[in-house]
Simulated scan of single mutants.
Amino acid sequence: MTVASLPQKSAWKAYSDWANNHRKWLFAAPAMAFVAILIIFPLAWTLYLSLTDASGSVRAESEFIGFANYTEVLTDTDRFWPAVARTFIFTGAALLVQMVLGMCIALLLWRPFKGEKWVRVAILLPLVATPVAVGMMWRLIFDPNIGFANQALAWFGIPAQPWLSGQDTALATVIFIDIWQWTPMVVIILLAGLTSLSEEPDEAARIDGANAWQRFKFITVPLMMPTIIVAILLRSIDALKTFDLLYATKGRGGGSFNEVETLNVYAYGLSFDYNDYGLSSTVLIIFFLIIIAAMWVLTRRRKDVQK
């Protein structure tokens, strides 16, 4: 070995050691860079459009107008703020029922019983279909004239209900459909958390005389809290950005009276119905900030629970 090759070997050894110490980042770097490009470019372009008066066509010339679009959107009490309220009502109501119902079903499936495999398969069936297919199916079921729902009510002497066609019942109906489809996802997450729990705390509480409710409230729920927050985080983000189900059941504008128009549906209408890309981008940026804020709150809550 020559003297000149020693520095080269030493440099290669230093690089090899550095790469070995940071191998998890090196292996993940290409995928992270690809995902970053996919996120950063559309977000930056949407932010730029929100500061312009872009409309009519994406190739049409537009002028920079600063925060004029944000002022117009944030002062819109006819469409924007009602859409914000519907977004949070839809998300909050669906999430609350899904968490309660999902926990009840997960507790029932926690202990082995005869035929549990078939029951689990049946519970997961709503997740097989796409939201658009689910929306069209329930649209037929809730049809005010030929739908099975009103036929079933007639058997018990209950008058027919407007369901999806009613201005006061449409939002509650689509919340029910979302609950029907996505509760199984919550069940899967919570059941995975329950099966990973140690049985020793529950057995110790049982020996001390604690009843089933006390064991659930003071042992199962605290131990399950990190898993519960994960389920809330995943479902809340997914429910906030729901679009396909709402569009499949109510069409443009969330109905004739915008009865199920959430922020996603509102932004879609501004873009593809009115070709107002500046205002649509503004709504999407505000919506993006709302989702980021929700993620931050839930993530902080999860870290506090883990501590």
Rank of each mutant, 00 (worst) to 15 (best):
D273N: 08
S5V: 13
T183Q: 11
W155S: 11
I292D: 09
Q161T: 06
N69L: 07
Y268F: 00
V84F: 09
F67N: 04
D76H: 07
A133P: 01
N20A: 15
G269P: 00
E61T: 10
G102E: 08
G147Y: 01
N258L: 01
I175N: 02
R235I: 03
L26N: 09
A160E: 05
N145P: 10
W213K: 12
T87M: 09
D238Q: 02
L96C: 12
I39E: 03
A294M: 11
G254M: 04
D168H: 06
F113M: 02
D244V: 00
S62F: 08
A152T: 13
I177S: 06
R59G: 12
I292G: 08
F287S: 03
L233R: 00
R206G: 15
K117T: 13
Y70L: 13
L233E: 06
M295S: 09
A149D: 05
L127F: 05
M295V: 07
W12K: 13
L140H: 13
F64P: 07
K117R: 15
P42L: 01
F288V: 04
A60C: 03
R302V: 05
L245V: 03
L164A: 11
L47C: 08
M224G: 13
F90K: 07
D53C: 01
A154W: 12
L43R: 03
V58T: 02
L191E: 04
F67A: 14
T52K: 10
G102Y: 12
A210V: 03
S198N: 09
S165M: 05
W296Q: 10
F288L: 14
E63Y: 09
I158R: 02
W213G: 10
Y274N: 07
P184C: 00
P162R: 02
W45K: 14
A33I: 11
M99I: 03
L109E: 02
W25V: 05
T195H: 15
F288E: 12
K250T: 09
F176N: 13
K303L: 12
A36N: 00
A106N: 06
P131K: 04
I175R: 00
A160F: 09
T282V: 07
P7K: 08
N275G: 08
V283I: 06
G92W: 15
Y70W: 13
L270N: 01
G255I: 01
G115F: 08
Q214R: 09
R86D: 04
I158Y: 05
I290D: 13
V119Y: 11
A231K: 11
L140F: 15
M32L: 06
G115N: 03
Y266D: 02
Y266R: 02
N21H: 14
T195S: 15
L96H: 09
I228M: 12
G115D: 03
W18T: 05
G166D: 01
P30F: 14
